[in-house]
Amino acid sequence: MNNGHVVQLENVSKNYRRGSETVHAVSDATLAVARGEYVSVVGHSGSGKTTLMNIMGCLDRPTEGRVTINGHEIQNEGEAGLTRLRQTSIGFVFQQFFLIPTLNVLENVSLPSLFAKRKLNGRARELLEMVGLENRLHHLPGQLSGGEMQRVAIARSLINSPPIILADEPTGNLDSRNADMIMSLFQQLNKDGATIVVVTHNPGIVKGCDRMVHIEDGRIQ
């Protein structure tokens, strides 16, 4: 399938067990994200946003339905195949940044390339310049502000040049000034051609997106 959509979900459901109860986290969801699109996914806590994002991020397989990421149907992929897709096709940005505290900024950004076995040739520096952290290359995460840490995380998500960026509440831990900065950065990345899917409660982010997807009780509205 290559109809201009880098993410395509068709009748996707995801159920999992919690004790004796079966949770229907996502039910019959159909969604297509075009290349270069900037999509926000909104919904209440427990509505299935994160599960949807995990499926799009090749971290989980659907119980039912078909998921195609950058031309690969993930239900047919083994563990190694999903790992490879995460290395090459997806960049993750999380609310908690997940920077390695003992590696400096430059090393943190370079880390995903280690697993993808890619040569960087200065790309980490370029990305850090792009997010305005060229003066912080050798700082440790503990020496950065929350906004700076999230910018490092964004630079890290781009290091393997993935066609898709998935962000889960990227401004959730930031004050409004830093949140604005991150929103501008996402918009800039999107203008430069990145496909971005962002799970958020932040109306500012939603306003800047091409499209909003609302999910409630596991169903896309």
Binding site: T83, Q87, F92, F94, Q96, L111, P112, F115
Partner: peptide
């Protein structure tokens, strides 16, 4: 655990 989970997200294999 969370950090290792994140490393898996960014492509760290078993």
């Amino acid at each position: 655990r969370r950090e290792i989970a994140y490393l898996k997200c960014v492509g760290a294999g078993k």
